[in-house]
Design a protein around this nucleic acid. Structure first.
Lengths: 238, 238
DNA sequence: TTGCAGTATTTTGTAAGACAAATTTCGACA
DNA sequence: TGTCGAAATTTGTCTTACAAAATACTGCAA
């Protein structure tokens, strides 16, 4: 008996439901939502709960409400694309090739710079955490364990920059790596292939060598891109 | 007669008011907000409007509500630091030297990469817009006109990457440039000093030279950093 | 027929009151 | 002293009512 996904709050569920409809393309920019009373009835919630959800979606730039005229879906250029929820909704279905490319471009920009900054600013505790994450990757016995440890590793690097703006970009890295994990789930045998790349980056950061850290991270992401392309070809021949 | 700042909606005003109190440090992480009924009375709004505002602040990661225990201000590491509102609230008062440094670090990461990507991906219309923005900068007769055109120029570059994730980083650039404009408001005589830098970047993008665009943009941001340091020294002595 | 003004209508915005659900706290009892 | 259960408090949800804003329409006059 598949019970419905229980998010903590009712309005959180509504946010998720409508957000997914919009970002997923079921509701298109320019579309007019049903009036609040009708939509509330359709979703089986009170107008109060619905409105709390709508305010959140408005804050994410997805919709725009005006008296008398109604509530419209905004153009995609107004969406807060870096918002963790928006990214999650975009990756809910397997992302398009185009979007995967954009995620990779972001990694290529963010991660080498973050690695360099981390090599410069990381304190001992942060380096310890990085080492722990690496150890967990080395010890991973399946793709799931690897994925958790890998995310931890990359987050630890962002944290080690000691720049909270950089840290907030983790949502993007998470989306990119998450997509990659899903795509490589089929070929799950050699999930540890990138461990040497991680070790190099780890060493460079431990030794406080920004340039080396940047270069090694560039290699890691470039390799990741190549691997993704390989996955794609395999999937096509499939 | 200074009328209160009229944001469109009541709850938008409440979002602004509470958001500023939190990000501005008047309410600190761990602090417990008054219960909804009391806070609503303090702010002279209904509980309904207050709750719509609280949901927005929750979505921005600033607060966390739980039944019986109340609503707490979350630790800064959970705040959505890239959110345009959060950035605005942080820059509402003149930012700390530390934060200015972090904004500059972000510019150094984002803008050279964006310029390179723009040189690769920009279409004719996007280049036209970039040229228009440059022309407006060249024609600017005061710091205000310059600021508008400058923001336009940098946004046009992000748009020309044709990567909506990159475009969403404009909120960060806007905060960084905005802070810079405020700081250099005193020495408003040579506000056009960086025009040659902009011209070089423009040319590189027009000619589709990614490497040149990256390098020239690096120079521009480095120069901006040097100028900021100069402002700071002047402010200390002055 | 066309333009304008004023009115009607529709939709979101705000308020208020009641009750449900969750969670902590405190007390009773073993 | 420990554990279980009841009470109290705070957020969560629903309902109803009305205010405000903006469009659409209607009728009048030029």
């Amino acid at each position: 008996m598949p019970r419905p996904i229980q998010l903590r709050n009712l309005h959180a569920q509504v946010v998720h439901e409508l957000g997914q409809r919009i970002v997923g393309g079921q509701l298109k920019p320019g579309d007019l939502l049903p009036r609040e009373e009708a939509l509330a009835e359709e979703l089986q919630v009170s107008r109060t709960a619905l409105r709390e959800a709508m305010k959140v979606l408005t804050a994410k730039g997805l919709i725009e409400a005006r008296p008398k005229v109604g509530t419209r879906v905004r153009e995609a250029r107004f969406w807060h694309q870096l918002d963790a929820d928006v990214l999650t909704w975009r990756c809910a279905t397997l992302p398009t090739e185009d979007f995967v490319h954009k995620l990779l471009e972001m990694r290529e920009v963010i991660e080498p710079a973050a690695a360099a900054s981390a090599a410069e600013h990381a304190d001992e505790e942060q380096i310890k955490r990085l080492q722990d994450a690496y150890a967990a990757m080395a010890a991973a016995r399946n793709l799931d364990e690897w994925a958790v440890a890998d995310l931890d590793f990359h987050q630890a690097i962002l944290d080690a920059t000691n720049n909270e703006l950089m840290v907030s970009l983790f949502a993007v890295i998470e989306a990119a790596l998450g997509t990659f994990f899903v795509m490589s789930a089929q070929a799950a045998d050699d999930f540890r292939y990138s461990l040497p790349h991680h070790e190099k980056v780890l060493q460079a950061i431990c030794r406080h060598r920004p340039d080396a850290a940047r270069r090694d991270m560039q290699h890691m992401v470039a390799d990741s891109r190549a691997n993704m392309a390989r996955q794609k070809r395999a999937a096509r021949k499939g």
